[in-house]
Amino acid sequence: MAETSKDELVQLIRKFGAYLTVKFSNIFSISLNNMNSRSLGAIAGFAVAVVFTWRLLRTPRGPQRRIQKRQAASSSSSGLPSQTNTTSTSSGVCSTSEDLRAQNVVDEFFQPVKPTLGQIVRQKLSEGRKVTCRLLGVILEESSPEELQKQATVRSSVLEVLLEITKFCDLYLMERVLDDESEKKILQALEYAGVFTSGGLIKEKVLFCSTENGRSSFVRQLEPDWHIDTNPEVVSQLARFIKYQLHVTPIRPERTASNVFSSPSLEQFFGSI
């Protein structure tokens, strides 16, 4: 039944193709110059659609014969005389195989293209062109200015996202420090990690201050599209001045404003891990 329906549809496509061939030949014989690029594009697109439909509906004769032979051999070895059941089973298996094959072709043809990390970053940042970000707890492993007096370590998991941001955003990094040695340790850690080699971020865009309010002042002066911070008080203070903010915190807080988002880390916000 399924085979008859497919044959009828194939014959219909052939007749329709012959009809179109006559029509197109008449059109071309009248005046080829009167057809514009859109008409030719429509004809080409229709031809591709017909070919694709034909390939989907084409019945694989080889596998069907092999399936029938295997079913017949199985029936004869078991001593069952029912040829009707064998034919019905073979037809059902073949039909299922054809349906799966057609579905696989369609799924492969329409399989969505996975976006790149750069595309995800641009989408998440809503095409924002300027970003400010604190260092402690976001870019660096350390979480307090006291720890920076001993060492500064760049989180390896955040590097890929950070470099993607610098490709199309004007990025400023900032942090509260207790002494000049802490500043040097931070710059050395960033340089060693290769943050400055991409060309999107320079040392002059790494800002230091002595208070949390000083960081808030930096952000307000720079007027970024996004600010990334771990301090809930700073995030709350800047909510009415900055278009978007990302609050990096291990504990998901209650959303205080519609323009404030939260995530356990910068890289998780962009889905890179």
Rank of each mutant, 00 (worst) to 15 (best):
A2H: 12
A2V: 08
K6R: 11
L12F: 14
I13S: 10
R14F: 02
A18V: 10
Y19W: 07
L20C: 04
T21Y: 00
S29L: 13
I30K: 13
S31I: 09
N33I: 15
N36C: 11
S37D: 08
R38D: 12
S39W: 02
G41R: 08
I43S: 06
A47K: 02
L56D: 02
G62K: 04
Q64S: 09
R66K: 13
R66E: 06
S75G: 11
Q83N: 13
S91Y: 01
C94H: 05
S97I: 09
S97G: 15
A102K: 06
V105Q: 09
F110T: 09
P112W: 03
P112G: 05
T116D: 07
V121C: 09
R129A: 15
R134H: 12
R134W: 02
L135C: 14
G137V: 03
P145S: 04
E146K: 10
E146W: 02
E147R: 07
Q149C: 11
Q151R: 14
T153G: 03
S156T: 08
S157K: 09
L159K: 14
D170K: 09
D170A: 06
D170R: 08
L171H: 10
L173Q: 07
E175G: 15
L178I: 03
D180Y: 01
S182D: 15
K185M: 11
K185L: 13
Y192T: 12
G200K: 00
E204L: 05
E204M: 03
K205S: 10
C209Y: 06
S210K: 15
T211A: 05
E212H: 03
E212F: 09
N213W: 01
N213H: 11
G214D: 03
S216I: 10
S216M: 06
Q221D: 15
W226Q: 04
H227T: 06
V234H: 08
V235Q: 03
L238F: 02
N259I: 03
V260M: 04
F261S: 14
S262L: 04
S263D: 12
S272R: 08
S272C: 06
